[in-house]
Design a protein around this nucleic acid. Structure first.
Length: 621
DNA sequence: AGCCTATGTCATAGT
DNA sequence: TAACTATGACATAGG
């Protein structure tokens, strides 16, 4: 590749034409980059330079193959020229620049993905519909709940998405966490049933699922705090359901294994093999699903270090603190990065970064002031460029606030810029220094004049040095920024040598490319900032969805309780022709499509349940 | 001395 | 086709 060729020589010079002459010259200078302060080459005259260039040009090679050596020569020549009081005044002054604001950008945008999570959550959730799908005969009863579940935000779908993201992650669950998450009192059977013992990872999908079924089946206290306080029958078999009247309903309900009541036998059997025939479970699937959802929620919450119970606090937290550390002032490294960020927070950020942290908005405002080259949408850009005079690259220097542009004394006034001590001054326009950095003429001595010249010499860009050395009769700014027609017109006004024309073209090319590179970098940083903002937004959305999930589960739980109470009450009040209550093991209530409730034999209900259960399964496949 | 950041430069592809 | 722009890659300076 050409890059290899290019990298074979020092600097950014063209790789083509690595002739001995070039290497000789380059080798002569390579240790002395043009910006090296105080570098002084041996005396060489411009004629030699021209000769070398012409040789290269004649051979079809770019003259920059001895870039550095030539630059050095140019510096020397310029020095001599200046010392000779040749002031061409082609380096107009430039106004002082605005200091860059510190845009503190924390490179750490990482959304914290917490602890390992042995359980495969996705498989859990996938298992939900297959095993706990609500029997179809309950559809009419459940559908309002389900629609209520999914309509507002299509939570399930979003949840699946979240789960898929999280499925490779792991977590550690301890009892305390689960208790917090579920708002459950210590010793809540939930903890036991879910095997959420301290330091016990949930790493068995099946067992977790089964446990969750069991937990649900054995204790509705999970979803009903008021029932929670009642004595729990544990995992005993189906308790006799003999509520002869409604007054005993509560006690019966409280002491009854509700799973036995509400889970179909084929499902309940896994948790309780000894259980006899039970009442059909109009809620089992829903409960199971909800419970698993809640487990998933808990898992996610734990993974995220997110406590659903405290979900309501999250939004404020997110609002007050992005969590993305756009304000990287805490980070030591961020200060140095702020150098680039200060120039990069971009013109576009004036519109896009307003929602960012105060730091970034500060930076963006500073950019509104500073404008940008080409990339900026700020109207001030042009004005600034025009006002900045004719010196080569000034626009970008003022706009991007090069640290090299800054007077160290000025920097010292801004503590957050004190670290900006770089001295990339080889591109600095001398005229800018005239106005901004030099002591008043009255204070100048002869020595200081020399120093000043020295300093100016150092501040000049390489191309400016070259232009001077080649006696280019107009400014680099014109070379770079004039429209091509005017540029050509300008060239035609002068009798320029091939070397001069070549240099001018290179200066123009490099100058434009330099601005392009700056814009490119600024865009890149803008992109990063926008991505950070996107991450923020997504985190906020995630927190909001989790909150909504919690709220939904809460209301769902309440509705389930109501339905189950109604079921109990209706079934308990039913009497056969002899005035005896129906056995829940032999009969079940079926909800018809028209809203009516039918009492059907349990076997028939089971058959229908199985039949309807397969449909959604197949549909999923 | 080695690493990091900022910047300039070049090559190249795209406009 | 020429001019310009965008961008990845590299080199260098300076902290």
């Amino acid at each position: 590749m050409t890059r290899l060729d290019r990298s074979s020589h020092s600097g950014g010079g063209h790789a083509k034409g690595s002739r001995p002459l070039n290497s000789l010259v380059a080798g002569h200078r390579v240790a002395q980059p043009p910006s090296a302060p105080g570098s002084r080459a041996s005396v060489q005259d411009i004629d030699l330079i021209d000769i070398l260039w012409r040789q290269d040009i004649d051979l079809g090679a770019g003259r920059e193959i001895f870039d550095y050596s030539h630059r050095q020569k140019e510096q020397d020549v310029d020095k001599e020229l200046r010392d000779g009081a040749e002031q061409e005044d082609t380096w107009p002054g430039e106004g002082a620049e605005a200091l860059a604001r510190n845009l503190l950008v924390d490179g750490e945008t990482g959304e914290s993905f917490p602890a390992q999570f042995p359980a495969d959550i996705s498989s859990i959730t996938e298992a939900v519909p297959s095993e706990s799908e609500p029997p179809g005969l309950q559809n009419n009863l459940l559908s309002p709940l389900l629609t209520g579940t999914e309509s507002p935000f299509d939570l399930e779908q979003q949840w699946q998405d979240l789960m898929s993201i999280m499925e490779m992650q792991a977590m550690e669950v301890n009892t305390s966490t689960s208790e917090i998450l579920y708002d459950a009192p210590p010793g809540d059977p939930l903890s036991t049933n879910y095997s959420l013992a301290p330091n016990t990872p949930i790493n068995q999908n099946v067992s977790l699922h089964q446990a969750s079924l069991g937990g649900c089946s054995q204790d509705f206290s999970l979803f009903s705090p008021e029932v929670e306080s009642l004595p729990v029958a544990g995992s005993s078999t189906l308790l006799p359901l003999v509520p002869s009247n409604s007054t005993s309903l509560n006690s019966t309900f409280g002491s009854t294994n509700l799973a036995g009541l509400f889970f179909p036998p084929q499902l309940n059997g896994t948790a309780n093999d000894t259980a006899g025939p039970e009442l059909p479970d109009p809620l089992g699937g829903l409960l199971d699903e909800a419970m698993l959802d809640e487990i998933s929620l808990m898992d996610l919450a734990i993974e995220e270090g997110f406590n659903p119970v405290q979900a309501s606090q999250l939004e404020e937290e997110f609002d007050s603190d992005s969590g993305l550390s756009l304000d990287s002032s805490h980070s030591p490294s961020s200060l140095s990065s702020s150098e680039g960020s200060s120039s990069s927070s971009s013109s576009s950020s004036s519109s896009s970064s307003s929602s960012s942290s105060s730091t970034s908005s500060t930076a963006s405002s500073s950019f509104s002031e500073e404008g940008a080259v080409g990339y900026s949408s700020d109207s001030e850009t042009l004005d600034l460029e025009e006002a900045e005079g004719a010196v080569g690259y000034q626009p970008e220097y003022s706009k991007f606030c090069r640290m090299s542009y800054q007077d160290p004394a000025q920097l010292s006034c801004l503590p957050y810029l004190e670290h900006v001590g770089h001295n990339h001054t080889y591109n600095m326009a001398p005229s800018a220094l005239d106005s901004a950095d030099l002591p008043p003429p009255s204070t100048l001595k002869k020595g200081s004049k020399e120093k000043q010249a020295d300093f100016l010499d150092k501040q000049m860009s390489r191309d400016e040095h070259r232009a001077r050395a080649m006696k280019i009769p107009f400014t680099n700014d014109k070379i770079i920024n004039l429209p091509v027609e005017e540029f050509n017109e300008l060239l035609s006004k002068y009798q320029l040598s091939e070397a001069q024309l070549s240099l001018i073209r290179d200066i123009r090319r490099r100058g434009k490319n330099k601005m392009a590179a700056q814009n490119c970098r600024k865009r890149k940083l803008d992109t990063i900032l926008n991505l950070e903002r996107d991450v923020e937004d997504l985190q906020r959305d995630k927190a909001r969805l989790l909150r909504e999930k919690v709220e939904f589960l809460r209301s769902l739980r309440q509705m389930k309780q109501k339905v189950q109470s109604l079921y109990q009450e209706v079934f308990g009040r039913l009497r056969d022709e002899n005035g005896r209550p129906y056995s829940p093991s032999q009969y079940a209530l079926q909800y018809a499509g028209d809203g009516s409730v039918l009492l059907i034999p349990r076997t028939l209900a089971d058959q229908q349940a199985r039949r309807q259960e397969r449909k959604p399964k197949d549909r999923r496949k």
